[in-house]
Design a protein around this nucleic acid. Structure first.
Length: 493
RNA sequence: GAGGCGUUAGCUCAGUCGGUAGAGCAACUGCCUUUUAAGUAGUGGGUCCCGGGUUCAAGUCCCGGACGCCUCACCA
């Protein structure tokens, strides 16, 4: 705000000059746009033959002035297009004003379409309207034959000023358009299967549904602490109890943890719950959601991610967690003693919070030895009972769960359960979990209201959570979560 | 949390052994009616991230800090 550097001052002076000497308002209220740049380029033959007059608006990205005529490239929401602007066509006053304009200004123009002698589709304009004067210079990015020069490269500046990044860095807008398409397609599929999209509280008196440190806030009028949700699960299950039968929410969750290439403190989760279904239904739904979306946005199930070739073609591999450990590390955890398990966890640099629990040691070994090796889509099933309090035990072996985690490229993409609905079991497991808060600060507190909801009777239900940001990363090839978040969390400067 | 690297003009970047701060683009003043990283002649533009220290002299060397990026650790 206090920036008084001369580049900005020069442009402020121009605003006054345009107003006072040209009698033109640099900030008019409205402009009637009839076409976007891509329509003109795609439908050039028609516009040229009919000599149809088009009206377009956009931001000036490049200017080449040659005395009494100029070429200028503007960018609208769909792309770029060249303009031909001549003194003889728009009048001396407006041409002189045009020469005062800068890269970054927004103009509206009307004219007809033709190709230049070197074949570039160009709007030969007969009317020029200044729509907004820029006073803060944009980074100047140039391009020749597809090669970019002087790209806006400083990631810190790009993330802190995403609006500028969107204007000047090729491909950024496309990534976010793809993100929107991905979410839209998931909603379309779920809507078609009769799932209701719902909104549940972000501010919660008790948090749960995952193990993570929460953000805390305070409500002044009620004088109570509130937590930002760490998952969507507790309230969506209340809605299953309430009789919605099929619900989903795509929304922000918040975890007070570190920031890195795959973690942002606020991130977007899809969670869905289907009454009368189980984890098998969730498995086929996961396949359908991800494959159909990949086909919609990429037109193929094959993708290249961080140098790895991945094919999402179904059916995906299924393995019990203990079998996966055996296959990838040779360890037969089913026949190992507790001491042997402890030794293996320690040997591979692992760590178990609090007292030793056999199931958590097995899960830890899986994470240490197997997880990163699961490049092609793989469902890992039958996690040890102790890994979550919210899932039903397996029918055949109650030391394990009716649960799966989906791994792609060594990363968890989905987590699904045959949801726990036995209220006595549920009260016990959540209470036991809350007791672990002394030794595990990520264990959530007891949620009495949630348990009472389950006590009212929740039908057998399959549930699943999918990390939307990671799915967008996978389908766009971006290896940093920051590149699929419009405004990633940054420390203040 | 640990390590590595980085921070110089609006943007992208040079800056040698410690010796008056550089280029391209952008900007400004001109020329130029088919250019396209337009061309062309000229001009201006700096808290060298911040704070200490060493030195006659620090963008440069040393110490501390901020912010960022990368790798690792952590992460239901």
């Amino acid at each position: 705000m206090e920036d008084t550097n001369s580049l900005i001052q020069i442009r402020i002076d121009k605003i006054n000059e345009i107003r006072d000497n040209f009698g033109i308002n640099p900030f008019p209220y409205k402009y009637d746009v009839t076409h976007y740049s891509n329509e003109i380029i795609d439908g050039f033959d028609r516009y040229f033959e009919n000599q149809e007059r088009v009206s377009i608006a956009g931001r000036i990205m490049a200017v080449r002035i040659m005395g009494k005529a100029s070429f200028c490239t503007i960018q609208d929401k769909e792309g770029k297009i060249q303009l031909y602007i001549a003194d003889a066509n728009i009048g001396e006053l407006h041409y002189n004003m045009f020469k005062k304009l800068d890269l970054g200004d927004i103009i509206g123009v009307k004219g007809t379409v033709k190709k230049t002698k070197v074949g570039e589709i160009t709007v030969y304009i007969d009317e020029l309207t200044l729509l907004t004067k820029n006073i803060r210079p944009l980074p100047v990015v140039k391009e020749k034959d597809g090669e970019m020069f002087d790209l806006f490269a400083d990631k810190e500046l790009r993330y802190r000023n995403r609006q500028i990044d969107l204007i000047v860095t090729p491909g950024v807008k496309e990534t976010f358009k793809k993100r929107i398409s991905i979410i839209r397609n998931i909603k379309k599929i779920l809507d078609s299967k009769d799932f209701f999209e719902v909104e549940t509280p972000v501010l919660q008196p008790v948090y749960g549904g995952a193990a993570a440190a929460p953000f805390t806030s305070h409500h002044n009028a009620l004088d109570i602490n509130l937590f930002l949700r760490i998952s969507l699960e507790p309230y969506l299950k209340r809605l299953i109890v309430g009789g919605f039968d099929r619900v989903y929410e795509i929304g922000k969750c918040f975890r007070n943890e570190g920031i890195d290439r795959t973690h942002n403190p606020e991130f977007t989760m899809l969670e869905l719950y289907q009454a009368y279904g189980d984890y098998n239904d969730m498995m086929s739904l996961a396949e359908e959601l991800i494959v159909d979306t990949a086909m919609q946005v990429n037109g193929t199930t094959e993708l290249s991610f961080d140098g790895k070739q991945i094919d999402l073609k179904t059916p995906w591999k299924k393995m019990k967690m203990t079998d996966a450990i055996k296959e990838y590390s040779g360890l037969d955890v089913m026949s190992m003693s507790d001491d042997e398990l402890k030794a293996e966890v320690k040997k591979h640099g692992g760590d178990i919070k609090g007292d030793y629990i056999r199931g958590l040691a097995i899960d830890e070994l899986f994470q240490l030895l197997v997880e990163h090796k699961l490049i092609q889509p793989t469902f890992i099933t039958h996690q040890p009972l102790e890994t979550t309090p919210l899932c039903k035990p397996d029918i055949e072996d109650d030391r394990f769960l009716q649960r799966f985690e989906l791994f792609i490229n060594g990363t968890e993409f989905a987590n699904a359960y045959s949801e726990s609905n036995d209220p006595v079991f549920q009260r016990k497991t959540l209470y036991n979990q809350s007791l672990r808060r002394d030794i595990d600060e990520e264990a959530p507190p007891m949620d009495e209201n949630f348990v009472q909801a389950i006590e009212a009777g929740m039908p057998p239900t399959g549930g699943m959570g999918i990390g939307i940001d990671r799915l967008v990363m996978l389908l766009t090839g971006e290896i940093s979560i920051r590149d699929v978040l419009l405004f990633p969390t940054m420390k203040p400067e």
